[in-house]
């Protein structure tokens, strides 16, 4: 089963908790429901984007620091 993770808000997508830290998840990494896969910054406030199921990350669909729209797919997940 393949499912996409969507951005809950418009803003800027980050794959790392801070510029000098490693990414939350790499493509191919296993994820559990509730795992943070990235951040969306909207109006200087940061929101965590979480996986809604157990599986692994197939591919990220946006790059670190890309602008994103609400509802835009951020990553593809395989359950």
């Amino acid at each position: 089963m393949s499912i996409e993770i969507f951005s809950p808000l418009p803003g800027t997508f980050y794959r790392k908790p801070a510029p000098d830290q490693p990414v939350y998840k790499e493509s191919g990494d296993a994820v559990a429901k509730g795992d943070v896969i990235g951040l969306v910054e909207v109006m200087k406030t940061f929101y965590e984007v979480k996986s809604e199921l157990d599986g692994h990350i197939d591919v990220f669909l946006v790059e670190n620091e890309d602008p994103v729209q609400a509802g835009q797919p951020l990553a593809k997940l395989k359950g």
């Binding site: 808000l9 418009p10 803003g11 800027t12 910054e41 909207v42 109006m43 200087k44 602008p67």
Partner: peptide
């Protein structure tokens, strides 16, 4: 359209 990239 208020952009999301700056302060509120």
């Amino acid at each position: 359209a208020i952009p999301p990239f700056y302060d509120s």
